[in-house]
């Protein structure tokens, strides 16, 4: 199970039990509509959607590295993100789930999609590059 950081929890993001059939290996991260993620009145803020996409990107890559047995030894640093906004974010629950396109030893490329009630209608999508860095061992 992926642990979400303080920012994600403050925004009301949570990991959903069910998996998405398009990417069954990846966790689905969801966020309910609330005042703290509202942009123009009655719509989700684009930055909040970006934050959700990014969180799902992290969760997707962590889950992948976990299966590879190396997640505990590495730290993920986002290198860049490119978001396409496809539809307005409606005032209801939004989901995001990603797919690892390529994970090498040093970098990984992940694609993420977000949707609401209708899975076939994407609200936004993004690609992200991550740097996979060895975890620094704490000095005694």
């Amino acid at each position: 199970m992926v642990a979400l950081p303080p920012y994600a929890r403050a925004m009301g993001m949570f990991v959903v039990e069910a998996h998405d059939s398009a990417a069954p290996a990846s966790p689905v991260v969801a966020m309910d509509f609330s005042e703290c993620n509202t942009g123009r009145p009655g719509f989700l803020h684009g930055g909040a959607i970006g934050g959700l996409l990014e969180m799902a990107g992290f969760a997707t890559l962590h889950a992948h590295l976990e299966r590879e047995g190396i997640d505990a030894q590495v730290r993920l640093k986002p290198v860049n993100i490119s978001i396409e906004y496809l539809r307005s974010g409606l005032p209801e629950r939004i989901f995001a789930c990603g797919e690892v396109v390529r994970a090498g030893r040093r970098v990984a490329n992940v694609r993420v999609e977000a949707w609401q009630a209708d899975r076939s209608k994407s609200v936004a999508s993004c690609w992200m590059n991550f740097l996979i860095a060895p975890k620094k061992v704490a000095a005694e």
Binding site: Y7, G47, G50, E54
Partner: peptide, 13 residues
């Protein structure tokens, strides 16, 4: 370190 989500929102606005 601050999450990058707030940085996306800040740059978006």
């Amino acid at each position: 370190v601050m999450a990058s989500g707030p940085i996306i929102s800040l740059l978006d606005n």
